[in-house]
């Protein structure tokens, strides 16, 4: 039996979703690739144990978030220096929202950004998010609140995106 049995299939099935999460976390295609490479190498190294415990998915996600937070502590990952285009004929609203959202995400703290990605992109519950971040449920709730508040301040143009979330939370 090969120690990597099932690893290739796991990566093939999950790598596109993982790449997207990595991209949302880092905001840069090269860094997203670096992040995913470093995480998948860890997963490959521990693969037999992860399969035995049935936890490859959870481990991968947790490793990615931890690695990202650790990188952000050491260096500035992105320099969003391009202003979004004016709203008009040439760009649709979705394009402008995307650029503004990316710029706003870049100004969150690493944990706030991770919370936004895990809760609202990966649709994880507060409890699952707390497990991945290794913190309490209360911390996730307060991080989410602060992150949404900061996004609303940084990108008032996108307030309609956050209003819906706040309403659900109330």
């Amino acid at each position: 039996m090969n120690r990597y049995d099932g690893f290739r299939e796991f990566v093939l099935a999950r790598q596109q979703a993982l790449t997207r999460s990595a991209y949302l976390l880092t905001g840069d295609a090269h860094l997203a690739e670096d992040l995913l490479q470093s995480v998948l190498l860890k997963v490959a190294n521990h693969w037999p144990r992860l399969v035995r415990h049935g936890t490859p998915e959870a481990y991968t996600r947790k490793a990615m978030i931890n690695q990202y937070i650790s990188w952000r502590r050491r260096k500035q990952l992105e320099l969003p220096n391009t202003d979004p285009p004016e709203r008009g004929h040439a760009h649709d609203d979705a394009t402008i929202d995307r650029i503004i959202l990316r710029q706003a995400l870049a100004r969150l703290t690493p944990r706030q950004r991770a919370v936004i990605v895990l809760r609202f992109y990966e649709d994880l519950s507060e409890r699952e998010t707390a497990e991945i971040l290794g913190c309490s449920l209360g911390t996730v709730k307060s991080q989410t609140h602060h992150a949404l508040g900061r996004l609303r301040t940084l990108a008032p143009e996108l307030s309609q995106l956050f209003a819906e979330i706040e309403e659900v939370r109330r």
């Binding site: 290739r8 990566v11 949302l24 995307r98 995106l161």
Partner: peptide
């Protein structure tokens, strides 16, 4: 909106590399 932003992510194939 997050989904839209994530659509710019690169296409990777890292299984064999890992």
């Amino acid at each position: 909106a997050l989904d839209n932003a994530a659509a710019d992510a690169p296409t990777l194939n890292l299984a064999d590399w890992a």
